[in-house]
C-alpha cells in the first residue's frame, strides 16, 4: 500500500516571489476534498532529506529562475528532468536562493538511496526577490493553477 503523498513547499516568505512554495501551501490548506500532508520546507535544503526518507511519493514546490516569463509553470519529474533540476535548483549556482539547494538535496537523496520513487517538482518562474512581501504580476495566478494541479495529482494517493 502506498504511503500518503507528501507535499513540500520551499522558499523564504519574506523575499518577494521566493515565497511561491509557501503560498501554494496556503492555497492547498483551503482544500477540503481530502486530507493532504503539507510541509513547509523553508530554505534549509539539507533538512529536506528527513522529509523524503521513507516516502513513496512527494511533490515539491519551489520558485525557479530559468529566464522564462515570471509565473511560468514547470512540472519536472525524476529521472527525466535531472538536467533542468540540477541547472535550476543547484544552490550555489546563480539561479537559486537557498543555502543548500533543492538540486543538491535531491542528488544527495538519490546517492544515499532515499529518494522517493515518485518525485515531482513544480517550479514557478520568479520575478522579484527583493526583501518584502510584494509579488510579481503573473505569479499569483500561477500559484492558484499549481495548487489545483497538485490537488488533481494527489487525489488518487488519498484514496489508495
Amino acid at each position: 500500500m502506498l504511503s500518503p503523498i507528501k507535499i513540500i513547499g520551499l522558499g523564504n516568505i519574506v523575499r518577494g516571489d521566493d515565497a511561491i512554495g509557501h503560498l501554494v501551501l496556503q492555497e492547498l490548506q483551503r482544500n477540503d476534498q481530502f486530507p493532504l500532508s503539507l510541509v513547509n520546507g523553508g530554505i534549509a535544503g539539507l533538512n529536506l532529506l528527513y522529509e523524503l526518507e521513507g516516502m513513496d511519493a512527494v511533490i515539491l514546490i519551489d520558485a525557479v529562475s530559468s529566464q522564462s516569463e515570471a509565473g511560468t509553470i514547470h512540472r519536472l519529474t525524476i529521472p527525466q528532468d535531472w538536467g533542468k533540476i540540477r541547472q535550476w535548483t543547484w544552490s550555489s549556482s546563480v539561479t537559486s536562493t537557498h543555502a543548500f539547494g533543492l538540486g543538491e538535496a535531491l542528488t544527495l537523496a538519490e546517492t544515499l538511496g532515499i529518494l522517493p520513487p515518485q518525485t515531482v517538482i513544480y517550479g514557478i518562474e520568479l520575478g522579484t526577490v527583493t526583501i518584502g512581501n510584494s509579488m510579481s504580476p503573473g505569479v499569483e495566478e500561477s500559484i492558484q493553477t499549481v495548487a489545483t494541479q497538485i490537488i488533481a495529482e494527489a487525489g488518487p494517493f488519498s484514496h489508495a
Binding site: 532529506l49 528527513y50 543538491e104 542528488t107 544527495l108 546517492t111 544515499l112 538511496g113
Partner: peptide, 24 residues
Amino acid sequence: SGIEMARIHPALVKRGLRMKKAGN
C-alpha cells in the same frame, strides 16, 4: 563536494545526517 563524498563514504554521510537530525 559532500555529495561526491557520499558516493564513496555513504555510511559516514549517513552518520552525519543522523546526528544533524538529532539537533533538528
